[in-house]
Design a protein around this nucleic acid. Structure first.
Length: 405
RNA sequence: GGGUAGGUAGCGAAGUGGUUAAACGCAACAGACUGUAAAUCUGUCGACAUAUGUCUUCGGAGGUUCGAAUCCUCCCCUACCCA
């Protein structure tokens, strides 16, 4: 097993990072690895309470992949046990707790999605219930004696919640300790996380030291800004681009980011040696439009393929630039030959309620075969020949009667 | 255990007996505009109906009243203070 040189490794590892605690220790660890030929154990904790991975997660996953490419060992910890606690990081509210079974299922899905970035054959997967679940209450008490309430309250989000009189449950204090135990158990050399995980990573470091293990190096990565350009990307804020989004959705969402985000996204989301990355970084200021289109294509290509990326672009142009109906729309069959438009919209899922459907009609949002319909009492006559129904800018349906003779 | 302040629509937050389905902000949805699903502007935003009508909502359960989110009783939940 031969590793790249110390300097080469450091160049790759430090790129895009926010903080490395501490750089000197990192260097020592790499040198030690070079000397002994033993790869570094690099830990990334996965929270299976949110099994929908989005581009924000990919920043950290990509860093882990870089470690893999350098020849080190990537360990993905599925926090099935800690998910039953719920990570309080950055949250103003207690997270919902998962059952063991949900956590396992989500964990499997997490790994599957993460495999779009990681090399799945070189990734070690662990479930932390395997060791945390075996701890006795006495073990937990011993563990918690290593930390103090004051130190816990140092943490930003806890402090904020405490000051603004919001509830903090005792079990939330146990979360950082539990996930720090993972580091004790694994004896990993490096742990990765977003900047919001800094506290947790440091607890892992402290605890390893307490248990007489060489403390891990903590590497934090920037949090990706979401499509709206302000908050960090998060599923619940609706500004996320998910791994599992359809290519066309993914493309459109990327294209919707503000122009000033192009450079940042390009740096954090595209492979450091790719030509797409270079092209975008060079050209985005002169031609933001084409740079962003390129960025969107590159991203879709990562999760799907070049072909699908191109199809997504065509689809987008057709719908939003030329304002035409998409080429392929799913056909829905109805048994009744005549249906009130309101009921039709509800049945298709285009409207949340009949009132909602009426609203859309009144707001000029509904058309059938390019013809606007403004009458909320309109009754639509269906035939075996499909009609194209458009509700809003993005919802298209093809409707017809079921052919039963 | 005692005291105090609270629990309002997806979220945040007004409202303390009747023109209150409930201000306002965010989110969401629609329209216009745009290279864009961004930004901006306009409108909508409980359900059912459409003749400005009916029904269900303000932690839960009862009660007072012609009439309650608003008053009373009990219960549940949260924060803070005192033990």
């Amino acid at each position: 097993m031969s590793f790249p040189s110390l300097q080469e490794q450091l160049d790759v590892i430090t790129a895009n990072t926010v903080e490395i605690i501490s750089p000197a220790e990192l260097e020592q660890k790499i040198q030690h690895s070079l000397k002994t030929g033993a790869p570094l154990k690099v830990k990334l904790g996965a929270d299976p309470s949110r099994p929908d991975l989005h581009l924000g997660h990919s920043v950290v996953l990509r860093k882990l992949r870089e470690f893999q490419d350098l020849g080190h060992e990537a360990i993905l910890i599925i926090g099935d046990f800690t998910a039953m606690i719920g990570d309080p990081s950055g949250k103003s509210k207690t997270r919902p707790q998962l059952t063991a079974e949900e956590a396992r299922q989500n964990g499997a899905s997490y790994f599957e999605q993460a495999s779009k970035i990681l090399d799945p054959h070189k990734t070690t997967i662990c479930y932390n219930a395997d060791w945390l679940g075996k701890m006795t209450f006495a073990d937990v008490i011993r563990l918690s004696s290593h930390y103090t309430v004051a130190r816990m309250l140092e943490r930003d989000d806890f402090e904020r919640r405490y000051r603004s009189s919001e509830p903090i449950s005792i079990h939330e204090f146990l979360y950082p300790l539990a996930q720090a135990m993972d580091s004790v158990h694994l004896r990993n050399d490096v742990e990765l996380g977003g900047t919001d995980q800094k506290f947790n990573l440091l607890v892992g470091r402290d605890l390893q030291r307490e248990y007489g293990i060489l403390p891990q190096v903590c590497i934090t990565m920037p949090l990706l800004v979401g499509t709206a350009g302000e908050d960090k990307m998060s599923k619940s804020l609706g500004n996320a681009v998910c791994f599992n989004d359809l290519p066309s959705d993914m493309y459109g969402r990327v294209l919707s980011i503000p122009d000033n985000l192009i450079e940042n996204w390009c740096r954090l989301l595209l492979p450091h040696n790719g030509e797409g990355r270079r092209a975008i970084l060079e050209g985005w200021e002169e031609e933001p439009r084409s740079a962003k289109r390129r960025l969107a294509r590159e991203i879709v290509t990562q999760y799907y393929s070049t072909t699908e990326a191109e199809a997504a672009e065509e689809h987008f142009d057709r719908l939003f630039v030329h304002k035409k109906a998409p080429t392929e729309i799913e056909l829905t069959l109805f048994s009744e030959p005549e249906l009130p438009l309101v009921d039709l919209l509800l049945a298709l899922g285009a409207a949340a309620s009949k009132n909602d459907a009426r609203r859309m009609i009144q707001q000029n949002a509904v058309s059938i075969d390019e013809e606007r319909i403004l009458d909320i009492k309109a009754v639509i006559t269906l035939s075996e020949e499909p009609k194209t129904l458009k509700a809003g800018k993005r919802k298209f349906f093809r409707i017809a009667t079921a052919a039963n003779s």
